[in-house]
Design a protein around this nucleic acid. Sequence first.
RNA 1: GGAGAGAUGGCUGAGUGGUCGAAAGCGCUCCCCUGCUAAGGGAGUAAGGGUUAAAAGCCCUUCGAGGGUUCGAAUCCCUCUCUCUCCGCCA
Length: 425
Amino acid sequence: MIDPKLLRQSAADVAANLARRGFEFDADGYLALEERRKSLQVETERLQSERNTSAKSIGKAKAQGEDIEPLLAAVKQLGERLEASEAALQEVQAELRDIELGLPNLLADDVPAGNTEDDNTEVRRWGEPTDLGFEPLDHIQLGEQLGQIDFDAAARISGARFVVMTGPLARLQRALIQFMLDTHTSEHGYAEAYVPYLVRTQALVGTGQLPKFEEDQFKTIDENPFYLIPTAEVPVTNLARETIFDADALPVRYVAHTPCFRSEAGSHGQDTRGMIRQHQFEKVELVQFVAPDASMAALEELTGHAEVILQRLELPYRVVTLCSGDIGFGSTKTYDIEVWLPGQQRYREISSCSNCNDFQARRMQARRRNPETGKPELLHTLNGSGVAVGRALIAIMENYQEADGSIRIPDALAPYMGGLKKISP
RNA sequence: GGAGAGAUGGCUGAGUGGUCGAAAGCGCUCCCCUGCUAAGGGAGUAAGGGUUAAAAGCCCUUCGAGGGUUCGAAUCCCUCUCUCUCCGCCA
């Protein structure tokens, strides 16, 4: 959520910033509504004050044994006026809140202009696109040749966009998870977190998936429904919900492995084959809570933490800054890490690292105590994949394939594979 | 699933219709005192919001959440959520 005070005072500036995303913010409409809120709130609070004063004097009079009948008569119609005023105020406030919850985050100044992913700007590359010396297969062919990926079986159980893996390949996914968690906890200062995979509405509102992206979520049928988490970002970031961190407690860093569930509404026809885009996939997620002035530096750091994983796995990648039209709803600045996939002969997203500054923190009242003022203030939240496990698995399969269709195990994963050097049919 | 108890500020915990945003203790901050340490004395110490250019001040809201009764609710009623105890079941 954008600071309502800023919306009031600089609605036009906000509109201009959001326009860079291609988002249209009706500043005049908002300000008109805001004017109504102001007069209604002032009036409502005046009436409340009046009620409180008279209630107190009635109490006092009664205690002294005086006749309270005339006092009661005097406040008789106050209740009705107050009730009407409160109801009107509530309605306007709900309307304002709906608008505010629907506004994406303000963009950082250095976010490049653009409309699609083609306009993202490359920041750096690591490694060279793998030259295998033969015609590479993609992970689908490789997996089926190995007999360790079975999309048909998955379809019989659950339909499209699911996968079944067996044998060493299934173990390789587990090895990746372990490797990533170990690296981030032992080298990058993250605490491992185990969190719920089913969450309440408020948690998703906190991180920004709701109310706007309801159709992307899986949800239980219940009058008080659970949502399946689309990313560990949701439960982990909500660890800061309604808390005030001591000044010296930050930064707080969490890493969590969870499955992620996405309905993929609106992505029909995209990546339908293979396990690039699934309803269920594994991800290791990095989350940080930092002081407001520290978040941009933390974004660089966190992105670097994700990069280390790819470097250790010796997977070629590049880092791009997402342009104004491609960046996510809650982010003020995002780096994507794209890994080279020989089967597709191109870079594909394997991690997305975002600085959400106070956007999520405001939605969930995540604060820290300012050491100078002693007062609570919103902290900043960041998240990034460290990294997407399924896609890392694909990247290893395709980059480490041999001419005979077997797959070498990267050295970094050797300790997790029980001595296995290569996966063969 | 059944029965019962409970949810109050950073923590413990009092408060069962009126001057209670809330006793007391702990913790924390500042000051005084004491040669160090320990002890002692005093003051302060919730959050959110509105008004304001901003601050001060003033006002509103909040005692798990939502609704209700009342001139007035932490306190009474209803619903929900969560926690604890016992029984049952269970990985």
